[in-house]
């Protein structure tokens, strides 16, 4: 009994580490770059994607024996869309500030390669529970990468974390202190995200080789 539990959990952990969707399979890049300006936004996105991937995988797997093959893709898209819309409506009702920042990127979770990758690659072949864990793991791996990137971008681009000023205001350049610290504004713009991910891929590969 314990061995089957072990093997089921492998679905989860492999997605987070050995097969991390962002750094190894290089999927889900689009949103990883665009919404990691601020940590709060990055975490919300990570949680949303985890939710969508996990539940879509679950339902696709549930329906896998009844889905005709020629409408397989559109069925997956439909199920994914339903969960994305659920998340979007929920955010707009209860987390309005964050939904303003995310705006259309919540909708873009539908085309997030990770979600489709998991439903097409795994969910239609395995039972619902492993599929759910697989999806959850993929989302978690994605969320972790997003948090790391968001951490660096917000810290160096704004001097803040979660909106709280971490780099003391006294350090900043001002009229009295022209040589003071200035925010590394490039961190907040697109190129920095590219550089960070490139660097992370490098680090991740090194860690995996030595692990």
């Amino acid at each position: 009994m314990s061995s089957s539990k072990q093997s089921v959990l492998v679905f989860f952990t492999s997605q987070v580490w050995t097969n991390n969707q962002v750094l190894i399979a290089i999927l889900g890049i689009c949103s990883a770059l665009a919404v990691t300006n601020r940590l709060s936004v990055a975490i919300t996105m990570g949680i949303s994607v985890s939710f969508v991937t996990a539940f879509s995988s679950f339902f696709v797997s549930l329906l896998r024996k009844y889905t005709p093959d020629n409408v397989r893709m559109i069925t997956q898209l439909a199920i994914i869309s339903v969960f994305v819309i659920v998340i979007d409506q929920f955010l707009r009702a209860f987390f309005f500030d964050i939904s303003k920042v995310l705006s259309v990127f919540v909708g873009l979770i539908i085309t997030n390669c990770i979600v489709m990758g998991r439903t097409e690659g795994m969910a239609k072949n395995v039972a619902p529970i492993p599929a759910f864990l697989d999806g959850l793991g993929a989302g978690t791996g994605y969320a972790i990468v997003l948090i790391i990137i968001g951490f660096f971008r917000e810290l160096f681009g704004f001097g803040q974390l979660f909106g709280y000023q971490v780099i003391p205001l006294e350090w900043y350049a001002s009229a009295e202190n022209p040589e003071g610290y200035e925010n590394f504004v490039l961190m907040v713009s697109p190129p920095a995200a590219f550089f960070l991910i490139g660097g992370l891929i490098y680090v991740f590969r090194k860690l995996q080789k030595t692990a």
Binding site: P190, F195, G198, I201, Y202
Partner: peptide, 23 residues
């Protein structure tokens, strides 16, 4: 290219530089 960066790593860095150019 540095072995760790070959393939995806350098592609990202290169895309970042291009993104800066488009800015």
């Amino acid at each position: 290219i540095v072995p760790g960066l070959r393939g995806m790593g350098i592609t990202f860095i290169m895309s970042g530089l291009m993104s800066m150019a488009f800015m």
